[in-house]
Design a protein around this nucleic acid. Structure first.
Lengths: 181, 181
DNA sequence: ACATACATGTAAATAGTTACATGATTTC
DNA sequence: GAAATCATGTAACTATTTACATGTATGT
């Protein structure tokens, strides 16, 4: 899945400008996909060249003109083929866990700070997901599922953080032994 | 966190060749970080230039010679500064959830297949993590924590998949309405 | 006065993946 | 006889991030 596919995905649901596509990824897609303006605008230009999307200019009062993109029939076919050929994979990269691997090399107070910050991040993420799922009535089944999925993971991790943070700090102190202050 | 930092991290724990660093990322680090030979070898060359690591050749019988790298004092200082300046962030990208967003555009049988495959992926990942945590007695507290973290997330997601897969398929069928076969 | 939202776009820099090249040894 | 493990490295390609450039309008 690259930025072109992400754009086609949004456009298969509704017409949108590049700016609105970016917003969609900050709002409803942010917990499992991300992209940036620097990737979206060139992608839309390429898709237009390839005839997979088209656009019309929309003048606005007191706002810059918009390019509103629509997916073409060819684009819809291409997107469906992409979906059919895509494996259900996931990738997870965590600087937090990398830091924890080296916790014994860090000042214990710093590790405590990291654990608190990570707990806060999980709380914040959960609040966002809970808000979306309760505020939006018109969610498609698929959309609701992605939110439940995010909530399940974040809730389990938050529970773990609350249960294991203090014991981890104690274990690290023991490992460091009597040389620690 | 880039490949150079990942290499320094391994070398802060023990001496290793490029090949052994790659293996470490396939084994104990695979659930939260990844990298490739094409990134590791150039990174080790740069780190050597910068004086953050050094190496000696080790001849082996019936095997190609190894370059065994060690972290220098400067490297250790640099790595500690990097750790201290790194925020506890996480990033998650999921093609699986992206596919679920468009489940209503796909044949229902295909969606069922995707749900099964994803469930299988979670089971496989859990088995790997369980095996490591039970087989290795000499785990550092930090390492054990990263494994518990991975297990917690994967177990929660597996539970959700088992509870919600069938209802999701039913909801999608309803959404598609009487036009579906 | 400053930040944020709206709106499009480019360019440089960074980084990483994938495939290739080479070659011995061991396992199936 | 094929595939996997050990072992290092390069090069082409792909992609993305970040910062910049430009400008209006609204909110604080």
């Amino acid at each position: 899945m690259n930025t072109s596919h992400l754009c086609l995905g949004i456009l298969s649901l509704r017409n949108a400008s590049g700016y609105e596509i970016k917003k969609a990824f900050e709002e409803t897609f942010s917990h499992f996909q991300a992209t940036s303006f620097g990737a979206i605008y060139p992608a839309l230009a390429r898709l237009t060249e390839q005839g997979l999307v088209s656009f019309h200019q929309e003048q606005q009062e007191k706002r810059p003109a918009k390019k509103v993109f629509s997916i073409t029939e060819a684009g819809r076919r291409h997107f469906l083929e992409t979906l059919m050929g895509t494996e259900p994979a996931e990738q997870y990269r965590s600087d937090f866990l990398f830091l924890m691997m080296f916790a014994h090399q860090l000042p214990i107070g710093h590790v405590a700070g990291l654990l608190e910050k990570q707990t806060g991040n999980l709380v914040a993420e959960l609040e966002i997901l809970d808000r979306i799922i309760s505020e939006c009535q018109t969610l498609t089944p698929g959309m609701r599922f992605t939110l439940e999925y995010g909530i399940a993971a974040n809730q389990a991790l938050l529970d773990l953080m609350r249960k294991r943070s203090a014991p981890l700090l104690k274990e690290i102190q023991k490992t460091e032994g009597p040389t620690s202050p």
